[in-house]
Each structure stands twice: as structure tokens, then as C-alpha cells.
Design a binder for these strands. Sequence first.
DNA 1: CCTTGAGCATGACGCAACGTGAGGGTTTAT
DNA 2: ATAAACCCTCACGTTGCGTCATGCTCAAGG
Lengths: 252, 252
Amino acid sequence: MNYRVKELAGLAGVSVRTLHHYDAIGLLAPARRSPSGYRLYGPEDLLRLQQILFYRELEMPLEGIARELGRPDFDPEAALVAHRARLEEKLGRLRRLVATIDTTLARLGGGERELKPEELYEGFPKETAERWEREAAENWGDTDAYRESRKRVARMSKERWAEVKAEGGAVDEALADAMRRGVAPGSAEALVLVERKVAHLRNFYEPSPELVKGLGEMYVQHPEFRAHYEKQAPGLAEYLRDAMAAWAAGRA
Amino acid sequence: MNYRVKELAGLAGVSVRTLHHYDAIGLLAPARRSPSGYRLYGPEDLLRLQQILFYRELEMPLEGIARELGRPDFDPEAALVAHRARLEEKLGRLRRLVATIDTTLARLGGGERELKPEELYEGFPKETAERWEREAAENWGDTDAYRESRKRVARMSKERWAEVKAEGGAVDEALADAMRRGVAPGSAEALVLVERKVAHLRNFYEPSPELVKGLGEMYVQHPEFRAHYEKQAPGLAEYLRDAMAAWAAGRA
DNA sequence: CCTTGAGCATGACGCAACGTGAGGGTTTAT
DNA sequence: ATAAACCCTCACGTTGCGTCATGCTCAAGG
């Protein structure tokens, strides 16, 4: 039931030092300590470590990982789905690298001295690590809205948080239902529902129309959120984006 | 024909600082400098950078990359083939990670609280970076033989080096021919050829029978070498291993 | 019972591979 | 000829651990 450092390290394929480090920076603190101070990791820790390793595999800085995992609305299953999407992207990149090797070999073998520089580097970075910055800075991360959100959430009581969360789920459910019933995203009915969603958002920060529109974009682009909504209903992310855009347009 | 830092950086998808760094540590020095000190990269530099990026993608430390690229017997094409093999391995790992996500999701969704820890981390490191150490330390890298080899090569004249290289190619060609003719790797004829190969090796260091045997093993295991021999003739790596093992056995 | 070897803990320093300015020339386009 | 865009060389900062050093802990065997 409990694992000591070396056991867990062996299981996960990381070093003991790495676990120490993760503990030191508060990324993965063991569930308990033995009377003599030994770190004892429980089953939840195993799952958390798995999440950490996936994020790390996808080159997110440890600090960013801590932030993600620390979000009150963090959804482990949605995160796994998002990881899968990102891994697929990476698989694509690696396949393009293999292709790059083949074209390079062909050129070299053919004795051609002229190899176009662009095709020499097809598939190398340019995106992978860059993405985290964009997604963090452009959408969330250290926007004022995000900081404000964190502050308000921190001030909420546990009960209040549960309420807010329930209301959020209810709103999304209502929107998913509207979508399934074929309600157009720009219709009056949809706009009322978006209004309700915006009211819910006010629990976190003051949402300007542009922010609401940006949020909608994010729902379809950011794998984390996309996964969250796809899980609820296929196509919901796009539906939300359209409905929120329509709402924002009516406000501008 | 010539590229300045930012151009090359843009093409390859790395930062200017990275190119500066590679220059500073002697990993990639630009072909020329403009009168005013600007770095000017030529076509050879493009190819070298490509190699560097492949090694880096495969997590080799920069120092190791410099060593590989600096070896007098470095074969760019064989290296590319080896990169491809290693990329395939990595692809396999990533695919296993995707599978890990799916099994984890299945367990979580099924409400099963019991998820076996081993399958939680299927596909994570445990090998990737570890490999370079093994391959470097166990086979080459900082063995005495390798250092001796480097020293002797450094003392050779350019003409002598060309001779040695030609002789090496001829020996391997003769061995490939023997293999194709169906000569058994343990036969007297093969042993004579191995003797000739050993003589050739003496240009680099004093090969003990065990070293010769180890070298044969390396030919089949180390992708770099394997690629080199496979290119010459399919199955040659294994053939050499067997022949060299037979020779070594006859010496022990 | 006690010792011994494997395991754990906490510092503390080290290192690779750049990121990030600072301060100051160069080139090119208008 | 002047601004915008690049380039150069220091030089210090950062991330994510690796690698000791020093000392406690714990199960197994003599």
C-alpha cells in the first residue's frame, strides 16, 4: 500500500534524487512520512507522478506542471486525454523527422550537392516547447484574469466551491442539451445560456466580451479544455465557441 | 550561399543564442566570418547542424555529439541510418505511452481503484538516456583503446590516413564477398580475412582477442556500426561478429 | 544482542544548456 | 544620414537534477 522512495523510483523509472527534488519543490509530496521520517507514497501519489511524467515528456517546465495540477478545476481524466492528443502530435513530428532523414539520404546518395535548407530541418522543434509559452501567456498563465481567478478561488469556502463547481457543471450540461436539441449557437435561447455561463465565470473574474470570445476559442484549441468538453458531448467545444462568440458580438 | 545567425536559426528552428553556444563550445563553428566579425554559415554547416539536432533529439549530451562528429571515421550517411533506427525506437516508446494512457483511462473509468503500478508507467524512460552511457562506457567512449586510437590517428599524415581507410574498406569488402559466397564464418578462409582485419585494427590500437570479440558484438548491437555494415551488405554485421568471435576463440 | 549492509534523510555544491540583458558596433532601407 | 534591424562579446541567471558527505534506521544473520 505504501511505497518508499526507491521502490517508487524503480516503478516509474526515475531516480530517487528526482523524487527528493519533486518533494522539495512541492510538486510531489508523499502522502505520509514514517515515524522515522521515511517518505511513504500512497496510490494517489502514483497517479500524480504519472501525470507529472506525462507533462514532463511533453516538455512542460516543472513549475508549470505544479500550476496545472494545482488548479482547483484540474480534471485528471481530461488531462490524460489531452496528453494523448499531444503525444499524437509528437508522434507526427517524429515521423516527419524520419521522412527528413530519408529525403536527406536520397539527396546525399544522388550526389546532389544542392539540398534545400528548408527540407533539411523538417520536423524539428519550432513548436513543441514554444507552445507552452503561447498557451500559457496568450490564454491563461499569467494573464491578470488568471491571477484574479486564483485569488477569488482561494478565498472561497469549501462549500461555496462545491456550489460553484456544481453550477458550472449544470450550465455546461444545459448548453450541451441545447446543442443536442439543435438550438443554433446564435439563437436567443443559446444567448441566455451563455449569459448564465458568464454569470458563473464572474465567480472567478470580471469577463469582458473579448475575454469571453477568447475563452471560446481556447475551448477548441487548447487540448486540455477541448478534452474536457468533448468528454461531455462531442462537438460541444465548437458549439460553445460559436455561442460565446455570438454573445460577445452582441455586446460589442 | 552564406547564412547569418538569425537566418540559420530560423531555418533550423533554434535560437540565435543556441548557435552562439554551439560556436563557443566548438560544436558548430561557422565556415567563415565576415570582415566585421559576423558569423557566416556555409552549406556544410547546415548538414552538420542537422546531425547535431538529430543527436540532440535523441538526447545525447552536446559533448558526446562533438565526440561523435569528431571521430575520424564518422560516416554521415551511416549516422542518418542509425538516427532513423533510434527514432523508430522512440516512436515505439511513445506509442506505448499512448497505450498506457488508454489502459489508465479504462481503469479509472471502470471505477477500479486497483491499478497495477507497473502498467502505470509503461513506456517511460528507463532506457532512452541510459543507453548513451552504456554504449559509450561499455564499448567505446572512454576506454583506453579508444583514447589510444585517437592518438594514433592524430599522428597519421593525411596520405597515410587515406591509405588506412582504403585498406579498411577493402578488408570489409573482401569479407562481404566471402559472406556472399557462402564461406562459413569459422572457416579457414574467413579466419585469414579476420586476421587481415585485425592487422588493420592495429593501425589504431593493440587489439586483444577479447577486444576483437567485443568489437564484433558491437557491430551488431550499436546502431551506428550496424548501419555502416548493413549498408555494405545485408547481414554483414552478424557475419563479422561470428567470424571475429571464431577468430578470438582460436586465440584464447 | 549486536553488527552489518542496504536504504533513507538532509544539506550543499556542481553542471549542462541555454535564457536574458547590457553595452556597443554594422548594415540596409528609406 | 538616420532609424530599424542585426550582429558581436561579456556576464550573470535558471532549470532540473547528479553527486558527494554525513548521519540515522531497519531487517537479517552470526
